[in-house]
Structures are given as structure tokens and as C-alpha cells.
Design a binder for these strands. Structure first.
Length: 485
RNA sequence: GCGAAGUUAGUCUAGUGGUAUGACGUCAGCUUCCCAAGCUGAAGAACACGUGUUCAAAUCACGUACUUCGCACCA
């Protein structure tokens, strides 16, 4: 399905919708998840916990969203998270100062020079607005972090632009109290905030968005030798370098130097297995190696996990080898001890980061799984059962002769273990169609035979087939189909 | 942020000066023991927000916000 169809679908069914919609001063880039969206998101997060976090013995924390200024001075965001921009005096067009200078003079200042350097070059080379040829105002800096005032004195702090900083800040404490050993994984799921200049495309580019980040603290001397990495298997990963995509096993990727070390390959394999379970079409994904220019300021080696959608390749996960950049900086600015003992050797661990965009992942799953079943004249969301916002629908075939009451009894039992939905109204076909559309994998229908012999029909979404089972077998049937795989 | 187009019920839509059309959806009832769009009825929009022009504005003008597309931006 294309972007527009998915968008309309999500809006119509209340998966997500714009925030503050009824007021004229609402801002772009803020969206809310409705009931079905929340269930879907929670199920996705639970899958992430099961397949990656618990699987790999990673610890999860929940840090605060507002963090003090010092954190971002140490992390480099206060300085590097800004762009030098210039505005035209007349037409108000905004440009990146560094980019415009490269274009006109081939001089590459980078984005972190003092503002007067940009100004000097613009004046010296007589650079004018490309749109209207008028002069520019003095360059300024645009910081993508939202600042916030704490307490009566409005002390400057920031809404975190990435969730990982609290993991770095907390690392020494976590390593001690959790009796850490390298490699040591810490994860966090939560909101991050970035003041995008132009948020677009609903939940794909938000100012407030969900991230699931994992930081693997490791010994840089063991990136190819730690015992755990020997578990690396022949999971096929798709790697794209300079526009060419290779399908290759994790092991081969390291041997052939596509991936710099086994640690990165190991987690790429894990991530691949996770995304395969979300139902994303893996043939439409790739790990794209970022060029020197594209990498973030803190990263030595970066791969983006991307999914192909109808609006192009979407970055779902950013994998960055951050070296000891973050820990050394926090150690330096806070004077806290960030070194640990590993094999009788005192080191500051390196960090490999897996930074997942939840909102974009959810969108990609929807786009790859929303199907138009022309033969049966229905729209079906072919979600994996464990991701479905409703696990099971409970219907009474007719609303009379005690069928309704019987369905009520089954419903109240089912909702203890599953996300269940009860519906009595209208024709049964219409109710099946509605549940298909939001991805409900199973529907139980109470009919006249139920009254006689305590059996119900259970309908399978994907092929619309039905089978009859005993009421007391429903729970184990659903458990097997939904949670065990 | 620039340029262009747009903004009428949950969704789509008619309506170019006299407070709004239709469909789908929703709800209630009927019908039907199994795959939507049969029947009856009901609710739901002062037409994005604001200002102005006018006796009168969804309809004209201006501003703002948002949406879409293009440019720029995406650490």
C-alpha cells in the first residue's frame, strides 16, 4: 500500500492522529497514538524486549526526558547539534551558511566554526541570496534541542534529543550495582525531542518521537574475540555500500571487511532476526554504510538499517560505533571515574549503539502489511498475531436466543489473557471485515451449536477458514498461535 | 523557512454573497445460524482560526496555523 492509503487508514482507525488538533495554534510535528496504535506499539516494544533485550541479557532503564545543560555540553550536543544558518534580509529564505559557502566558493568550513568566519566569507565573496539576490542578515545558530527553564529561576536545561545520554551518564553506577562485565548492554525506550525546522510526513519526521536505544559497552580489544561473539551465526544480512547491496552472512561480512568487526556483525544479525519477526518485508531492507560526510559527529562507523517504502528508503535504525567518545567526555566534564577493569586491564569501554526509531518502524510495518484482498473484497492488515492491536474478536452470530450472553461470558474470560474485543451488532460478515481491517488474527463466533455442545467456531484472518473447537480449548489454542513461535 | 496548491461532519464530497448537499462510517431497531455495503429511524459541520468589506460571507480581501508537493533541512 502507498503512503497516502496507509495514512488515511491510520487516521480513520485511530492508530495515530495530529496532536492538539482542535486548536488553531497547534504545531506541526506532534502526533498521538490512539487505542489501536498504542496496542500495536506496546506489542512491538514487547517483541523488542523479548527478541533483543532479554535474549541478549541487556539491562533496561527509564531515564528522565529533561536533562541538565552539563550533559549536553559534555556530549557535544550543545555545540554540535546546531547548524549555522543565514537569512535573506528581504525574502526571509533560510540557508545553511556552511553549505552555501561551499557551493559558491568551494571552501568547506564545516558547521562548527565561530559565526564571524561564515560572515567574513559571505562578505568577502559577495554572496547574495540565491532566490532574490538581496543581502543576508548576520549568520546565527539554530539549535535542534528544545531548551526548557527549570524552577523559579528558569535554569537552562534541555529536552533530550536522544535517549542514550542517560545511559552514558548512569554507566558507572549501573556497572557497579549490576555487577557488570563487558560486553555490557543497557537499553532505554522513550521519547526524544528535536526541534526540526520542517517536520513532514506525519509520524515519519516528528519533533517528539519514540526511540528504543541499546548501548553495548565493550572492550575495544575484544571486538573480534569475545566468547559471546562466537555465537554469531549465518544469518543473512543485506549490506549496501556505495549503492551496491550484498546479501551475505554475518560471518562472511566480517571476513570480507564489509563490516569492521564481529561485534557489529553480531548485533546486525540480531537486528535482522528481530525485524524479520515484525513482518517487515526483509527483501525491502538494507544496512546502508554511511559515508564519512553522513556520519554523526560522535561516530566512527555507522550503518543505517533502512526499509523501502512507497516514499523511498526510510531510516529505521541507526547503528553507530561511538568509540569511547561519550564516556571520555562525561568523565572529563563530570570528573567521575568511567574506567572499568576488564581482564586485569583498566579501560574506558567503547560503545556500539543501536538506535531504533519506533514510529518509523511502526509505519513501515503497516505499509508492508496492509493488503487489499480483491478476491474477497476486503482490506486486511496482515500483522503478525503477536503485534495485532486486537488479538481476538468475540462475536455472537445473532443477537438473540442467549447467544449474546454466551459470548459475553467467553469475552470476560478471554480478556484476562488476550487483547479481546466484543461485538454483537450488525451482520456477522461486516464484523469480520472490520476486524480484518485492523489486523485481528482470530475471531471466535458463538452460534446455536455453542449452546448445545459448548463449542465455538474460530475464524482465521489470513484465509478466512473456520474450525470448531471447545470453549475450554480456546485459551491454549490462542496462546499457541499468538505467543509461542 | 521559501514557492505553489489546499483546509466544509469520523472520512470523502456538493455548494462563488442570503447560516449547507450527498455518500460511506457510527448508533438504535428489524431481518438473517457464518463472511460487508437489505429495511426503518437517529445523531453528527454555525463551513481551519482571526480581522476586514457588506444589510448579509463557507463563498470576497488580508493575516495566522496546519496539510500536501517542490526547494532547503534531517545532528
Amino acid at each position: 500500500m502507498d503512503y497516502e492509503t496507509v495514512m488515511n487508514f491510520a487516521l480513520k482507525k485511530g492508530f495515530y492522529f495530529p496532536s492538539c488538533d482542535i486548536y488553531p495554534d497547534k504545531s506541526a510535528g506532534f502526533w498521538e497514538y490512539g487505542p489501536l496504535g498504542v496496542n500495536f506499539k506496546n506489542n512491538f516494544i514487547e517483541l523488542w524486549r523479548r527478541e533483543i533485550i532479554r535474549h541478549d541479557d541487556i539491562l533496561e532503564i527509564d531515564g528522565s526526558q529533561i536533562m541538565s545543560k552539563s550533559v549536553f555540553i559534555a556530549s557535544g550536543h550543545a555545540k554540535n547539534f546546531t547548524d549555522p544558518i543565514i537569512k535573506c534580509q528581504k525574502c526571509n529564505s533560510t540557508f545553511r551558511a556552511d553549505k552555501l559557502i561551499i557551493e559558491k566558493t568551494k571552501i568547506n568550513l564545516g558547521e562548527n566554526e565561530p559565526l564571524h568566519k561564515y560572515d567574513d566569507l559571505i562578505t568577502k565573496n559577495n554572496i547574495h541570496c540565491p532566490k532574490c539576490s538581496n543581502k543576508f542578515l548576520k549568520p546565527t545558530r539554530f539549535n535542534m534541542m528544545f531548551s526548557i527553564g527549570i524552577g523559579p529561576e528558569n535554569e537552562l536545561a534541555y529536552l533530550r534529543p536522544e535517549t542514550c545520554q542517560s545511559i552514558f551518564v548512569d554507566f558507572p553506577r549501573l556497572f557497579k550495582i549490576m555487577r557488570g562485565k563487558l560486553p555490557f548492554g543497557v537499553a532505554q525506550i522513550g521519547k526524544s525531542f528535536r526541534n526540526e525546522i520542517a517536520p513532514r510526513q506525519s509520524i515519519l519526521r516528528l519533533r517528539e518521537f519514540y526511540q528504543a536505544e541499546i548501548e553495548i559497552f565493550c572492550n575495544p580489544n575484544e571486538l573480534n574475540s569475545h566468547q559471546k561473539l562466537l555465537k554469531i551465526d549465518n544469518t543473512l544480512i543485506r549490506i549496501s555500500i556505495d549503492g551496491e547491496t550484498n546479501v551475505i552472512s554475518c560471518k562472511e561480512a566480517v571476513d570480507s571487511k564489509f563490516i569492521p568487526n564481529m561485534l557489529i556483525a553480531y548485533y546486525m544479525g540480531l537486528l535482522t532476526k528481530f525485524y524479520a519477526k515484525t513482518g517487515i518485508d526483509m527483501t525491502k531492507t538494507r544496512f546502508r554504510k554511511l559515508s564519512e560526510k553522513e556520519k554523526a559527529f560522535y561516530s566512527e562507523s555507522s550503518f543505517d538499517f533502512e526499509a523501502e517504502t512507497t516514499i523511498g528508503w526510510l531510516e529505521l535504525v541507526s547503528c553507530n560505533y561511538r568509540t569511547n567518545y561519550d564516556l571520555l567526555n562525561h568523565a572529563k566534564f563530570s570528573k567521575e571515574n568511567y574506567s572499568v577493569i576488564d581482564h586485569d586491564e583498566k579501560i574506558t569501554p567503547h560503545v556500539f549503539e543501536i538506535s531504533m526509531g519506533i514510529d518509523r518502524s511502526l509505519y513501515s510495518i503497516l505499509e508492508h502489511n496492509l493488503k487489499n484482498d480483491v478476491i474477497n473484497k476486503r482490506t486486511v492488515l496482515m500483522l503478525k498475531p503477536y503485534l495485532a492491536p486486537i488479538h481476538v474478536g468475540i462475536l455472537s452470530l445473532l443477537k438473540k436466543d442467549g447467544l449474546e450472553e454466551q459470548a459475553d461470558v467467553i469475552y470476560s474470560e478471554m480478556k484476562k489473557n488476550f487483547i479481546a474485543f466484543l461485538d454483537h451488532s450488525g451482520t456477522v460478515g461486516r464484523r469480520y471485515r472490520r476486524l480484518d481491517e485492523i489486523g485481528t488474527p482470530f475471531v471466535i463466533t458463538v452460534d446455536y451449536q455453542t449452546i448445545k455442545d459448548q463449542t465455538v467456531t474460530i475464524r482465521i484472518r489470513d484465509d478466512m477458514s473456520q474450525k470448531r473447537i471447545k470453549i475450554n480449548e480456546i485459551k491454549s489454542f490462542l496462546t499457541n498461535k499468538i505467543f509461542i513461535h
